[in-house]
Amino acid sequence: MSYPDYVKLVEVGPRDGLQNEKSQVPTEVKVELVNRLAAAGFANVEAGSFVSPKWVPQMADSAAVMGAIERRQGTIYSVLTPNMKGFEAAVEAGADEVLIFGAASEAFSQKNINCSIAESIERFAPVARAAHDAGIRLRGSISCSLGCPYQGEVAPEAVVDVARRYLDLGCVEVDVADTIGVGTPRQTAAVMAAVARVVPVERIAGHFHDTYGQSLANIVAAMQVGVAIFHASVAGLGGCPYAKGATGNVATEDVLYMLHGMGIRTGVDLDAVVGIGLWISQRIGRRNESRAGNALAAREAAACR
């Protein structure tokens, strides 16, 4: 079985991970989290989101976070931008990459943004043109690629359709996201292979939530198709309000432990990420969801006794 020699990890903890936290996380903690993650070697860090504070109050200080972080050469700092207002704020904040997001499920699109999939993509056209004109990277994320909380199964053709539209808009990467964490390896491989028929496989990313504990297996299945970009969240930060019992994004420490154990390079310091996971979990008063992180920390503590 063939696997990539190198995998690019996109750390989404500061944005996708923290945005569902009910208690406001101090700006200085967010800034330190981004700085620590960049220093650990991530090529890409999602640092904030320029959406309405009414909908995502946790991200209301994204401009302040972007203004205070220490920019590391070679690191791409990404932000979520659903419209031109958000894009303009992202440009002013110095974002290297903007992220647009739509769903592969009509039911999800209608219930969450009150429009069809096609209409949602059309709304991104001005953002895409502006990003192109400004020389800013554009990335597109496809929610509910492996299942929807409202309609259930999602046809691979629906994911492919959105991927094709993103490619037409000029997205340099297309994220295939299992928003509610219901996907399994064979399904993941089939969807990734379908998307790879319209998007070059080196521009496809896997974004998995670990609700049913399938994320690592799904990453392996995606790598077997040729995908070599994955998203992860330190300490398993995050969650999905649409899936009862969701445990959030796959933990970065778990992904790193697996990839490094397979001899796959990432350029990321696993020990540093373990420390970051322990630190952020303590700072925001939540349980560290990373099994590898907790095990490695316990082993280190035992060795120091």
Rank of each mutant, 00 (worst) to 15 (best):
K111T: 13
A130D: 05
E97C: 15
A130G: 01
A125Y: 10
A107H: 03
N83R: 03
I100W: 09
I113D: 02
E88P: 03
V91E: 10
G48T: 13
G86K: 08
F124R: 00
M66K: 06
Y77A: 05
P126Q: 07
S116V: 11
S109K: 09
G94L: 12
I113Q: 15
V56W: 03
L138M: 02
C148K: 05
Q58S: 10
C144W: 08
V65A: 03
R36S: 03
L80Q: 09
S49E: 06
Y150P: 04
L99A: 13
F42T: 12
G67E: 04
Q73H: 11
I121Y: 07
T75W: 01
N35W: 02
G41T: 12
A93K: 04
S120K: 00
I100R: 05
G74W: 07
G86T: 10
G41A: 12
A68R: 14
E92I: 07
A93H: 05
P57G: 01
A63I: 01
A131M: 01
I76F: 04
A68C: 04
G67H: 03
D61V: 05
N112S: 03
I136P: 01
R137W: 04
F124H: 07
E70K: 14
K111V: 02
P82M: 11
A43N: 10
G67W: 05
R72E: 14
Y77N: 09
A64S: 14
L138P: 12
E70L: 01
G86A: 05
Q73V: 06
H132K: 15
S141P: 01
R129L: 11
F101Q: 06
H132C: 01
Q110N: 13
V98P: 08
M59N: 11
K54G: 00
A118H: 02
F101R: 02
C148D: 15
P126C: 06
V45G: 08
R129V: 11
K85E: 14
S62F: 13
V65Y: 07
L99P: 00
A93R: 11
K111D: 07
I69N: 00
P82L: 10
M66F: 15
A60G: 06
L138V: 02
S109R: 03
A130C: 07
A43H: 13
K85A: 12
A60L: 03
Q58K: 07
L37E: 09
C148M: 02
A131W: 02
S116Q: 04
E46N: 12
N35V: 11
K85Y: 05
R72N: 05
G102L: 13
S49V: 10
E122D: 15
K111E: 14
R72A: 15
N83W: 08
R36H: 08
N114F: 06
K111Y: 05
N114W: 09
V65I: 09
G86I: 12
S109E: 10
